[in-house]
């Protein structure tokens, strides 16, 4: 799609390249202020363990069509998320820092086919997508740290070959 894109882009464009999860805030926050995101993460981690979202078995059941559980979790999460996003847009809800919350349209590229398929292959093997990888380590399965390091290596290799890959 793009040729040597990172060299010609601004900082924000490069930072948000191939990424949905970005910090849109222009405000500079102190280290202490970041603790609130840690608290959200903590609650999120408890949900992941308690609802067995991080279970290798549940992921196998999902892909073998033997359980509705994961479809239920993801389906309800999308509905709740969509209603929330709609409400934020409709009522112009601002962040607690008083900033306008902006949403960006995602452009299509072929990575969403090739990359997503490769991701899916790995997802069923490891029984975990990136969030559960962290959570599994938290539950004491320290050996999953190897999987996490390998996932970081995979990300690095993608960055290295990015401009040569079809997009």
């Amino acid at each position: 799609m793009q040729q040597n894109i990172a060299g010609t882009l601004g900082e924000y464009e490069n930072r948000s390249l191939d990424t949905i999860c970005v910090n849109d805030s222009l405000q500079k926050e102190s280290w202490v202020a970041n603790i609130k995101y840690g608290v959200v993460g903590l609650l999120f981690g408890i949900v992941f363990v308690k609802a067995e979202v991080i279970s290798w078995f549940r992921i196998q059941e999902m892909f073998r069509l033997e359980s509705f559980h994961m479809y239920g979790v993801i389906g309800v999460a999308v509905i709740v998320g969509a209603i929330s996003v709609w409400a934020i847009k409709r009522f112009g809800i601002k962040s607690i820092g008083g900033e306008h919350i902006e949403f960006h349209d995602k452009k299509f590229n072929k990575g969403q086919i090739y990359g997503a398929t490769l991701f899916g292959l790995g997802w069923a093997i490891t029984g975990a997508c990136p969030g559960p990888l962290f959570a599994q380590i938290g539950t004491g399965a320290l050996v999953i740290g190897v999987t996490l390091l390998s996932a970081i290596a995979g990300t690095w290799v993608y960055g290295y070959f990015r401009e040569k890959l079809p997009h």
């Binding site: 191939d18 990424t19 949905i20 999860c21 993801i74 995602k106 590229n109 990575g111 969403q112 090739y114 990359g115 997503a116 398929t117 490769l118 991701f119 899916g120 292959l121 790995g122 997802w123 093997i125 490891t126 975990a128 997508c129 990136p130 969030g131 990888l133 050996v143 999953i144 190897v146 999987t147 996490l148 390091l149 390998s150 996932a151 970081i152 290596a153 995979g154 990300t155 290799v157 993608y158 960055g159 890959l165």
Partner: peptide, 19 residues
């Protein structure tokens, strides 16, 4: 461990995001 994790990391970034 190794190949599974690699596919997750490589694929997620290539796809522009994970689950």
């Amino acid at each position: 461990f190794v190949i599974g994790g690699f596919l997750v990391g490589f694929g997620a970034r290539y796809a522009g995001g994970c689950t």
